[in-house]
């Protein structure tokens, strides 16, 4: 993978939300939802972005698409710095970068029928005239592409199941032939058997159309399945980024290791043998993140340095980035096998 293959590059991206209070909306604090995130996505690959709720993974996805104006940092798409473009220039680029939303119930306008939902991006961007034969054919083709009957065009979102709605959302995202799609937890609202349908569809489409995905999820097993590389986020920062196999077999960051061991495996024999490291406590609030390494309050290996100095997100091995003071080739950042950390109980 060469450097010039990079489709999306995110450089020290920050997104802070003000906390307002009082009658006149004074700012009383800041939520550092994304606090300095750097990564790049190659054309045609799927980068998985995992983390627990409130870690800023969705905000990152939205900031890349400028659905949230980044507070600082750069987002480069196909060589162009999006943060420097005017809003009309951004609108011109929108067809190239699309989004698939988590909630298939909220992201489709309940008053629009399926034809209108799927065809709207075409009309907005002046690609086709609404009602023309070309437009009707295109909408039918898109519905067929995602496995829906083109006869559904006149139906409304509330007449569909969750999985079908997500297909409608995918058809809409595909209508403008994007090269990059941010998938924001596209399957977490769906049942297991339907999840597999949607994941397979996304993979098929990637193969057919050469799509690049940023796949945001909290479900590690599904992320591992669909991604080429995976980034792990915690409290607004990246903890680790590596190829999918390496991240699972040789995770360097203690957070990745515990996350890995916390994911239940659908295999009872394996589950019984597995030693799990159970993290203590809850993640701190992003409105009041701890100083130094944000993970040090829950890290079983934290040393003094972790409480004061923010670890650099550095490339330990080719393509394997980690933000941990302890990470080294000798494996100092590995949670020892015998340390089965008990939860707060004992």
């Amino acid at each position: 993978m060469s450097e010039n293959n990079i489709l999306v590059a995110v450089d020290n991206l920050k997104k802070y939300f003000p906390i307002t209070g009082g009658m006149w909306g004074r700012q009383v604090g800041t939520v550092k939802a994304v606090d300095g995130v750097t990564f790049a996505i190659q054309a045609g690959e799927t980068l998985g972005l995992v983390g627990e709720s409130g870690c800023g993974k969705s905000t990152t996805g939205r900031a890349i698409l400028l659905l949230h104006e980044p507070t600082s940092g750069r987002v480069t798409f196909d060589g162009e710095d999006l943060t420097k473009l005017s809003s009309s220039e951004v609108r011109k680029l929108r067809p190239k970068m699309q989004m698939i939303f988590q909630d298939p119930y909220a992201s489709l306008n309940p008053r629009h029928n399926v034809g209108k939902i799927v065809g709207e991006p075409l009309v907005i961007n002046g690609v086709m005239k609404k009602g023309s034969q070309e437009y009707k054919d295109k909408v039918a083709e898109l519905l067929k592409l995602v496995g829906l009957d083109p006869g559904y065009v006149r139906r409304f979102p509330h007449e569909f199941s969750g999985g079908q709605r997500q297909r409608i959302g995918i058809a809409r995202a595909l209508s403008l032939h994007p090269s990059f799609i941010v998938c924001d937890e596209p399957i977490s609202a769906l049942d297991v058997s339907i999840q597999a349908q949607v994941v397979n569809l996304l993979q098929d489409l990637q193969e057919q159309m050469g799509l690049t995905y940023l796949f945001i999820a909290h479900d590690l097993s599904m992320v591992k399945h669909i991604s080429h590389r995976i980034a792990v986020m915690y409290l607004g920062r990246l903890m680790e980024l590596a190829g999918r196999i390496e991240l699972f077999e040789d995770p360097l960051h203690p957070y990745t290791q515990s996350l890995n061991s916390a994911v239940p495996v659908p295999n009872p024999r394996l589950e019984r043998q597995r030693k799990s490291f159970i993290l203590k406590g809850d993640p701190p609030s992003p409105a009041n993140p701890p100083p130094g390494c944000v993970f040090h309050t829950r890290c079983p290996l934290a040393i003094n340095e972790c409480t004061t100095r923010v670890p650099e997100f550095r490339e330990m091995r080719p393509g394997h980035f980690v933000a941990c003071h302890l990470a080294d080739e000798a494996g100092s950042s590995k949670i020892p096998e015998q340390t089965v950390l008990a939860s707060v109980v004992d």
Binding site: V192, S193, I194, A196, V199, S221, K224, H225, L270
Partner: peptide
Amino acid sequence: LLGALPKLDEEETKRLVSIRGA
């Protein structure tokens, strides 16, 4: 159902077995 789940212990990305329909 079991086929629809990705296996954390698998090496290669196999296609998930999906159950058709609703």
